[in-house]
Nucleic acid binder design. Sequence first.
RNA 1: GCGGAGGUAGCCAAGUGGUCAACGGCGGUGGGCUCAAGAUCCACUCUCACAGGAGUUCGCGGGUUCGAAUCCCUCCCUCCGCACCA
Length: 968
Amino acid sequence: MTASELDEIRAIERKWQDRWFHDKIFEPKSTGSKKYFLTTPYPYTSGPQHIGHTRTYNVADIHARFMRMNGHNVLWPMAWHITGTPILAISSCIERRENATIALYKNYIRLYEGDESRVEKIVNSFVDPWNIANYFAAKIVPDFQKMGFSIDWSRQFTTGDPIYNQFIRWQYGKLMELGLIVRGQHPVLFCTIDQNAVGEDDIAGGDVEKISIDDYVGIKFSLGDAYIVTATLRPETVFAATNLWVAPSATYVKAYVDGETWIISQQSASKLRYQQREVTIVEEFRGTDLLGAHCISPLGRKMTILPASFVDADHGTGIVMSVPAHAPYDWAALNDLKQQRDISADVDLYHLGSEVEAIQPISLVKIDGYGDFPAVELCERYGVRSQHDDKTLSRITNLLYREEFYTGVLKQTAQQFEGRLVRDVKQDIVEFLKGQNAASTIYETSAKGLCRCGGSVVVAIEPGQYFLNYGDPQWKEKAFELLDQLKIVPEAYRAQFVQTFQWLDQRPCVRRRGLGTQFPFSKEHWIIEPLSDSVIYMALYTVIKHLRECDPERLTPASFDYIFLGKGDPTNVSQQTGLSPAVLRAARDEFTYWYPNDHRHTAVAHISNHLSFFLFHHAILFPKTCWPRLVTLNELLIREGVKMSKSKGNVIPIATVPEVYSADLVRLSLVSIADLNSTVDWMEQEVEMVKKRLLRFWYSAKSDVEAGRPEYDEELSFASKWILAATNAMVSRASEAAHQFSYRKYVTEAFFEQLNRVEEYKSMILDNDERRRVLWDVTDVWLRVLAPVVPHIAEELWERMQNVGYISLAAFPLYDNLHAETLAQKRFLDGVIGDISNIQAAIRRETESVFIYLAAAWKYQLYAVAEGLDDLSIKKIMARAKENPDLRTRLKEIAQIAPGLAKSFAHEPASDSTLGFEAESETLRAAKEYLTRKFRKRVYICVENSETYDPANRARRALPAKPAIYVE
RNA sequence: GCGGAGGUAGCCAAGUGGUCAACGGCGGUGGGCUCAAGAUCCACUCUCACAGGAGUUCGCGGGUUCGAAUCCCUCCCUCCGCACCA
C-alpha cells in the first residue's frame, strides 16, 4: 500500500498516542461505583505480536472504550507470559548458531532497531532466555500503543518475577491442600541426547507436523523359550493374524525384558529402556535368521515368520503381525511374496513356497459396503501394485482403520467377542490378552522426529509426574456451577465448554524444563507448565502495585490468603509475614474493588484449555462473588485465504502497521471484515476499500468541522430534521450492537451507513448556515460513536471542534425514540424516488417533467378502515367499505385495490406503511426542490381527482404510501 | 466416530418466518470527470419484460405454514476441537 495519503492520519495517531500515554488516561483509580475489569491473554514474549493476535486485543479495546464512554471505570491491564520451553528452545538455537533462527530473530529485531550492529548485539544476547523474554515484553508495549490500545501499563509483570512465583506457589499450595494434585506415571516425548522431555518447540519442524504419542499393544508370540513381540494399534486383529513380518536386513535382538525373553528389533530394545523397562541384550542377529521360523500366537495358532520390506525396525518392535484381510500393507506384502516379487538375494524362500501359497486372509470385521476382505478390495480399487506403494497404502490404511474402528462389528472368528463393535471391544481384548500374559503396552511416537539438538525423539515414561486432577467430581461440580452462571458471547460456544468440562481429567501440570515457577512440593526440578500457571493471574493485576513494595520473600501463602480470601486480619498477617498492615489492607481493598473479572476476551482456540482451566481454578479457589462474569470469544485471522505462520512468512507484525497501514485503518478493518464468530480473512483488497472510506470520512468530517458552527434559529428543513433523526437512530442501533458485541454491525451502522447518510444529506440541503450548523451537531454525536473504533481520528476532530478534554473520556451520546414520523417520511420519499428512477430507467428517453399524484382521500379512508380489521380478507374489506358512506359509492374501484391491500398489510403492520395524506403531502412539498435538482426535471405534486392534468391516465394507480407517477 | 460451526448470486459475505430478487464489498459492464491513466462519482450486473411488471433462485430431497433462505426431517459436502501444545 503506497499510502502517502495516510500520512496525515498517521501523524495524528502518533500525536494522540503520545498524549494518552503521557497523561496516563487509561490508568483508573480504584474508586467509583461502576467498575469494569476486562482482561485479555498476556502475550507470550517469544517474538513480536502480529495482526492475528491483534484481532483479539482490538475487540477488547473497542469494548473497553465503549464501556468507558458509557460511564464505567474500566481497568484493562497487561502482563507477560514467559513460562515454558519455547523461549528456552529459541535461546539454545541461537547458542548453537542455527542460521534459520538467527535470521528470523534478526528480522524481528530489525522491526525495532535501525542499527545493524545493535541488531547483532541483541541477537547475541538471546543466548540468555531472559533477554528474549525481556526484550519482546519491552517491545510489545510500543506495539500495542501503536494500535491505540487503552491499556493500563502501570500493572505489568512477567510470569518469571519473584512476586509471580510466590503467587503461583500459593495457588498450588491451595490445590495441594484440596487434594487436587496427584502423582503417577506418564509418557512424554523425550530427547535421547538432552536426556530430557521435549515439547513441540524443541522438535525440528514440530510446529508443522505435530508428533504425538501412540499407545501400541505388544502381542507376544511364543518362539521356543522366548516371545517374539509384535506391536500393533489394532490388538483385536490377533484373531485374523496369518503370519508375522520382519525386516530381513534389520538387526534383531534376544533380550531380557522385565524378566522375560523377548525377540524385538535392536532399536526397539533401546527405546524400551526409556519406558521404565529393564532391558538386557543377550544376542544379536539379522532378520533373515528369523525367516521361516514358526511361532505360536496367543490363540494357539502356528504362524510362519516371513520377510516384508515395509517393516520398519525403528518403529514399534520391528515385528508386525500380518492381517491380510484387514490391513492393506499386509495384503500387498503377502501378494508380493506369492508372486516372488521384492525378494532380496539373501532371502532364501524356496523351501517356504508351499507355506506362503497356503496363507489365505482370515475375515474378522464386518463393515458396511465391504465384503469379507476389505483390505483386498481397497488394494484392488486403488490399484496397489506392491508394498512399495507407500502413499496409497498409508491412505487406505487410515481409511480402513477408521471405518473398522468406529463402525466395524466382530465376526465369529473373534470367538467370545463376536458381535461387538470394534471400538467397544478393543480394551476388553487388551485385558483378555494381558490376562494371559500375552500383551504389554508399548509407547511409540506417531512420527519420527529429531530434537533441535540432533537427538532422536522417543517416548519415555516419567514415573513421578504431577497431575492436576480435573476429573475430581467435586471440582467438576463446582466448575459446572460456575459455567451455569457465566455469560458467554457468542453463546453458541457454550456447548464446547460443556464438552471440555466433561472430558477434562488428569492433566500433567509440571515439566522438567522451562522458565517459570518451581513446583513447591518436590525437591526435584519440576517447573509448573505454562497452561497451569496462567489461570488466576487476573487477580494479581489488582494488587501488583502494592506487592511491588514488598520483599517477595515475605509474600507467603498467609499473605495471599488474606489479600485474596480475606483470611485473618492485617495485624496478624503482618506479624506472620513482616509485611506492613497498611500494604496488606490496601491490597485487599483494591482486590475486592476490582474482582471479579467482569469480562475476559480471548480467541476460540482457548476454550478447550486455558479458558476451561481459568474457570475450574476460579471455581475451586475463590468464593462465588469472585467468579468471572463474562467470557467473549473471537475466531482466528487468516491472510488472503491462508493461515498466517512464521514458516509461510506471511505474518504482518504490528510494528509495521504505522508504515504500511494506520492504526485506525487496521482497527476499522479488523471489525468490519467479520463478526466475532467467523474468521477474518485479511485481504489487501478489502483493506484498500476500508481505507478509501476512511479517507472519505476524514476529508468530509474535517471540512465540516472547519466550516464552523454558525448560529441558526430558523425552523429546520425536512432534510435537517431527517439527518438529526437518522443520527439519533444510528446511536441507538450502534449502542445495541455494542452491548451484543456485534462490532461488525456497529461499524456498518455507525461508520459506513452513516457516511452515506451524511453525504445524502449534503445533496439534499441548500441553505449554507443551516447545513453547517446541522452537520456540526451531527458530527458532535457521530464522533463520539466512532471514538471506540477510530479513536485517533475522533480525538483530532474533537479537539478541532474546540472541545475540552479527551473524546476517549467523553460521554457516549444519548438517544431517544421520538423521531419515528420523520424517519417514516424519509422512507416514503425514498419509495417515491425509487419509483421515479425505475420508470425513468424503463422508458429510456429524455423527459422534462414528473407528475406525482397523491391518492384520493377516499383511498386513505379505505386504508384506515382496513387497518382496523384483524382478518384482511377481500370479502371483509368489501363489507366494511359498504358500511362507509364515502366508500359505498366506489365499490368497483375498491374491489380492484383490495387484493393488493390485503397482501401488503399481511407483510407489515398498516400503521408502519401509511403516513396519511397530510404527512405525505407535506413530505413531497418539502422535498420538491430536492426532487427537481435530483432528477433535473420540473416536478408537479398533484392529487388524484378529475380536474388534474393526467394525459396517460396514471393518477388512478395512486395509493396511500405509493403515489402514482407520470413522466413526460 | 463424538462434539461444535457452516454450505446464500462470478467471488467474499449479511440476512434466521412476511418490507427478500435477498445489505455491503470485490470483480464485471456502461457512463460522467480527465489530453490520458490512476483516483473518484453515477447507473447496471439471476432470466424475461421495458411505465413502476412477471418468472425462477439461497447444498440435495421431503415436510410444516396463507406464506420458508429462515422452522422440522433424510441425505451430501466443508471447516474446527478431541489433551499435555502456547
